[in-house]
Design a protein around this nucleic acid. Structure first.
Lengths: 157, 157
DNA sequence: CTGAATGCAAAGTATTTGCAGGTCT
DNA sequence: AGACCTGCAAATACTTTGCATTCAG
């Protein structure tokens, strides 16, 4: 088990993968799609579609909200992004390309998200799924609670 | 590990728990709140707020959408219901009172949801959380994939 | 009696879609 | 040329809120 500190994929690596994916569907790698990929790299680990839309305000050429949403869908479908729902009423996106799979701890006090990976957990999940006749393709695991810092703060009161 | 086949709580048990919870907040057990509890018992294991709203159409006295939403919040807060998000764009509610904790397998072909519980998994989750300085209060785990039936069907083609 | 609850309609929030014109190959 | 894309605004889906009235304790 380890926290994940790997660097993210480069713009080039992402554009290559996106281009390859788009080709398989006879779609095009446009200027807007490139710009969105660039912006993605400047986003925090988890970001919303709206965060990305906002990053284009007052910029020329700008990219519209509709295009951002449409592109985020494509990026997810092409397995470049991953989508999460931490129960806040909106989706969060996370760059998946070049990073290995992991799960999340979510602090309900400060909103911090801690990533973790456990081989043991992965094996156990597979074992359980198979025992129930299920063929797993992916999973989402979130542990909610209080992080170290918020816990300390709570005890202080 | 076992699939969960326990019966659900009775209306009386739920109303008792709800009443106790409401008292602690100086809130009232109204006729509408009672009706919502009754309807909940007729719902499938997982239901949306809208399913519940619909169950009141053409009924007298009816309960409004706003009240349904407000009551579902209270029921969740009072740990009578649990909320889930299976990534379909709306919340699903599930009766938690009288049922023990479990996680879910979600078939992405047919939408079927299979429940499971694993002591081993629970322990592992706690172990990981603590190792990262985290104090867990709850978790949500979903394994997506193909269920036995859909898998067979896929192979047939 | 009095604070809490309700219904209604309106307002939000997040996301998707129709369409007319623009763009890439 | 033709298929795909884009921006815009309108539409959708789900949920929350403001307010005048009604109700539970």
């Amino acid at each position: 088990m380890a926290q994940n500190k790997e660097p993210q994929a480069s713009a080039d690596a992402i554009l290559d993968k996106l281009d390859a994916f788009l080709r398989t569907k006879q779609l095009k790698l446009t200027s807007q799609r490139r710009q969105i990929v660039e912006k993605m790299l400047e986003m925090p680990r988890h970001f919303t579609a709206d965060d990305l839309v906002d990053s284009f305000v007052g910029q020329r050429p700008r990219v519209s909200k509709a295009t951002v949403y449409r592109t985020l869908s494509l990026l997810s479908e092409g397995e470049i992004l991953e989508q999460h729902d931490f129960g806040e009423g909106h989706r969060l996106f996370e760059l998946a390309l070049g990073r290995s799979h992991h799960d999340h701890l979510c602090c309900t006090k400060c909103g911090k998200i801690i990533e973790f990976f456990s081989e043991e957990m992965e094996n156990l999940q597979d074992k359980i799924a198979h025992k129930l006749g299920f063929h797993p393709t992916s999973h989402s695991q979130k542990i909610y609670g209080t992080c170290r810092e918020c816990w300390r703060e709570a005890k202080r009161d």
